[in-house]
Simulated assay, not measured.
Amino acid sequence: MENSLPPELAEFLSREMTIGGITKTVYVSGDGPAVIVMPEMPGISPDVIRFTRWVRDAGFTVYLPSLFGKDGAIPEAREGIVIFKRACVSSEFSTLASNGSSPIVDWLRGLANQAHAESGGRGVGAIGMCFTGNFALTMMLEPSMLAPVLCQPSLPLDDPAGINMSPSELNEVKKRLRQESLDILAFRFSGDKHCRSERFRTYKEEFGDLFIDRVLPDSAANPSPPPFFDKVIASPHSVVTAHLIDEIGQPTLKARDEILSFLKRKLKD
């Protein structure tokens, strides 16, 4: 089923995809192995769309699910706060310290399974950002998932060292990564207030060399991001979207290129 699209998403096919009895809009474009790009808070902004196009143009079929916010909108501060508060009380997200992942991850694993069936290839990649940052890792419980990328994973909100996974999920993911020689690529800014060093330290303790962490200096962040990121996030945060500087030689652009190379190596080479 097709929907009318926001102008920013006009080159994507809008699909209503039902998985486990839950229907969500997913924007699809491209050709090649599937990569699921999960939006950051407060939604599918022009910066998220730009990054998704980069992934598509690298030779992948991109699946961009609408999980919160107004698709295609520039995130204003006040509206972004409303969307954030709404997501925090949603039953789909476990935003505070917990012994389990967010319920939405079950739907996302189903999306990965369906995307692999549709697009073929070796397997599926997934990129989580901010609110969705850790989801790409928990999605590794889906066998088709081969390439998890974590950009500034920010949940749980009240435990800087927490990783939003149950012990059983963590053990199963660790087991699979070791058995199949898979690894995790992750990014954050050094001074990020929402994805702090404690969280990456936990990942490193749990996954060892399988956790490839990249910490960018705060000076690499775009100094003039959209209002929500400037006034509400109020620190360097969004490595490949709002705080990316699209200029040759910039660390954030190098981070984007490393993600694309990681996806190609895991899904195409």
Score class of each variant (00 low, 15 high):
2 E>W: 03
4 S>D: 13
5 L>C: 12
8 E>P: 00
9 L>M: 10
14 S>H: 04
18 T>N: 09
18 T>C: 08
20 G>Q: 02
24 K>R: 15
24 K>L: 12
29 S>Y: 04
29 S>L: 06
39 P>I: 00
40 E>F: 08
45 S>M: 00
46 P>L: 02
49 I>Q: 06
50 R>E: 14
52 T>E: 02
54 W>L: 13
55 V>Y: 01
57 D>Y: 00
63 Y>V: 00
71 D>H: 05
74 I>L: 14
81 I>R: 12
84 F>S: 13
85 K>Y: 11
90 S>P: 07
91 S>L: 10
91 S>P: 11
92 E>R: 11
94 S>E: 12
94 S>H: 11
95 T>A: 12
95 T>P: 10
96 L>S: 12
99 N>D: 14
100 G>Y: 12
100 G>W: 10
100 G>N: 13
101 S>M: 11
104 I>W: 02
104 I>K: 03
110 G>Q: 02
111 L>V: 04
111 L>D: 10
114 Q>I: 05
114 Q>V: 03
118 E>F: 02
120 G>S: 04
124 V>I: 03
124 V>G: 01
126 A>Q: 01
130 C>A: 14
130 C>D: 13
132 T>A: 13
135 F>T: 07
136 A>I: 00
137 L>R: 09
139 M>E: 06
139 M>D: 08
140 M>H: 07
141 L>T: 06
142 E>T: 00
145 M>C: 06
146 L>A: 01
148 P>L: 03
148 P>W: 01
148 P>R: 04
167 P>R: 12
167 P>G: 09
167 P>V: 07
171 N>R: 13
173 V>G: 12
178 R>H: 13
180 E>H: 06
181 S>L: 02
182 L>V: 04
186 A>V: 03
189 F>H: 08
191 G>M: 05
194 H>I: 04
194 H>G: 11
195 C>K: 07
196 R>N: 11
197 S>Q: 15
199 R>F: 04
208 G>R: 01
211 F>D: 06
216 L>V: 12
218 D>S: 14
220 A>Y: 10
220 A>W: 08
222 N>D: 14
225 P>R: 06
226 P>E: 10
228 F>L: 09
230 D>H: 12
231 K>L: 15
236 P>H: 07
238 S>G: 15
238 S>I: 11
241 T>S: 14
245 I>R: 15
247 E>K: 15
248 I>H: 14
250 Q>V: 05
250 Q>E: 14
252 T>Q: 11
253 L>F: 07
253 L>I: 09
253 L>C: 07
255 A>K: 08
257 D>L: 12
259 I>H: 05
259 I>W: 02
259 I>D: 05
260 L>Y: 05
264 K>H: 10
266 K>G: 03
267 L>Y: 01
